[in-house]
Design a protein around this nucleic acid. Structure first.
Lengths: 332, 332
DNA sequence: GTGAAAGCGCTAACAC
DNA sequence: GTGTTAGCGCTTTCAC
């Protein structure tokens, strides 16, 4: 049978209160008593029951993370980094995967907020803030990760790629490119919108023609890159900017398969990506925009714990910036 | 304040028992009563408290997964696939990351088995079965994933790469290669051992010299491939087999950076990998060994639930097989 | 067809 | 310096 705190108390000849205080260091206990308690614990092989404890205290020591795609290394790394921070503070991480599906996100929000976790990290795939918000109990600790809604209501950590994308386009223009295409992720995401906005702004400022057909969006999943690239190639692009990591990650291989050499046949390709080692070796063929993924996860972890600690602390919206590594410059 | 089952009972004019039975469909409740209960629930915005519930019932509806490296797409995909199955059955997934560190695995095993989860999936980084076993409470539901110990004590799901590796080596030998090198992952892992064993068996059977210096191991992490490759190249290999996914994933890019063209300068490289789209485009340059990653995760999820349901069911050790795609053959 | 009430294992007043 | 005990929110037995 399960050994409980009363068993320990009985064997040690003390009260359950003393046992509890001993293991939690929550009030003074004499050395002798402590010794007897620990002795009894060892003898019985007692482990405090986590679920009784969290039921009693209301703290679950667990954070939920709703992610659009665990198998995407971008999120895998964010998770890793957040988990790192959380586990160091004695917290666990529950993962829910939405596969960029709004209904799945909805279900998970409901489940996780029903007393399962103390707080939530959300990289939302929702198309509107209202939809997300309506599913969150009032006052529930939440930190938005990577994807934001600019609502000022919840703290958030995200990455701005506006400037590096803008610069990359300018640089392409400066090298004489005119038909610069862009491949985006899911159109409804804040990240996609921001990136396309940067592209448009730069195209306009550089005096390049803004054609709708040069903007092509995928679904932020792995397989959606090739068709997007094909479309842009058909439309006679002389440069392509791939602004979603997973889609970027297959681009070079795909182009090579079609015998298109970056920097020569297609002159230049830019990426928004995390720091995947694989592309370091192509540093002289493409512009790269490296997002601070680990930082993103770490701050997400920090922020959610801060929210738990100080629920009334002001909302913070952290925007990290990507590193721009123009073609030819080796990475750090 | 929090709204509880008593609040609902009071408003509906019934007992807490009836409310409980209503929401759980656990005994007959008349239609009228049901209606009143649901009405009250809606009116108060009641959500049953998951932690009270799991405390009371002893079921957490949660599975823990101890992984060596979340940011590795191989495990990311396994997690995704397992989560898929589990969430469909109403279970949550807690992730713990060990970074191939045995102490971290130890800590996590202790934490997770202390009443946090109903069962555990473990892709262990331990060097011995004894060490793992000593940390598991007797009778705790566990399924070993990807890495096994051949102990017959716990169910397991893994992939055998023996045959494809053996064949790949034979094929290299058949094409006249003699100095075939192999890059392995962490030497203590069952997966690494099996793969190297397959390589050695094939080398011997093909009458090729077995030199210790042709076997080089990394740490199963991303950055460890380049130094391994360098060493094999220095030692004059005319073919290389990279038998760990993450390490394989940077290999082509790395070699290309050194101006070494697979199939031409280095004649042939083989990979053990999951089905990363990126390498599909190199199908005519390398042998590939594709592990059924999704299947692995799915079966892991099935098996652990089966263990929960029937704790006394016989231990099953499922061994999946990889698909061998010799150079030149396009993938499915 | 429904209610009363006993706990699940623990923490934290409150009491001495 | 330590003990007594109420009670967290729920499920479930027993009773009617």
């Amino acid at each position: 049978m399960k050994v409980t705190i009363s068993d320990v108390a009985r064997l040690a000849g003390v009260s359950t209160a003393t046992v509890s205080h001993t293991i939690n260091s929550t009030r003074y206990v004499s050395e002798e008593t402590k010794a007897r308690v620990y002795q009894a614990i060892r003898q019985l092989g007692y482990t405090p029951d986590a679920s009784a404890r969290s039921f009693r205290t209301g703290k679950k020591q667990t954070i939920g993370f709703i992610v659009p795609d665990i198998s995407n290394k971008f999120f895998g790394t964010i998770i890793e980094s957040a988990e790192n921070h959380l586990s160091a503070q004695g917290y666990h991480l529950i993962i829910a995967n939405t596969k960029e599906n709004m209904e799945r996100e909805e279900t998970n929000l409901r489940l996780l907020t029903a007393g399962l976790v103390d707080g939530l990290l959300v990289a939302s795939t929702m198309d509107s803030f209202a939809r997300l918000e309506s599913l969150l109990p009032a006052g529930f600790p939440v930190v938005l990760v990577d994807r934001t809604f600019g609502s000022q209501k919840y703290s958030s950590v995200s990455v701005s790629n506006f400037q590096p994308i803008y610069r990359s386009v300018c640089r392409l223009a400066g090298r004489g490119k005119r038909r610069i295409g862009i491949v985006g992720g899911l159109p409804r995401l804040s990240t996609t919108k921001e990136r396309i906005a940067a592209y448009r702004a730069a195209m306009a400022d550089c005096g390049l023609p803004q054609e709708e057909e040069l903007v092509v969006c995928g679904d932020s999943m792995e397989n959606s890159a090739p068709p997007c690239l094909d479309r842009l190639l058909e439309r006679g692009c002389d440069a392509i900017l791939v602004c979603q990591g997973l889609m970027a990650s297959v681009t070079i291989a795909y182009l090579r398969g079609k015998n298109i050499r970056p920097r020569r046949d297609l002159e230049l390709v830019s990426f928004v990506d995390y720091d995947t080692r694989a592309y370091e070796f192509y540093y002289d063929q493409v512009d790269r925009i490296i997002q601070p993924v680990e930082e993103l996860g770490k701050i997400a972890g920090e922020q959610i714990l801060l929210r738990l600690e100080k629920p009334d602390a002001p909302v913070v919206e952290r925007v990290l910036t990507s590193e721009y590594r123009p073609c030819g410059e080796e990475g750090a």
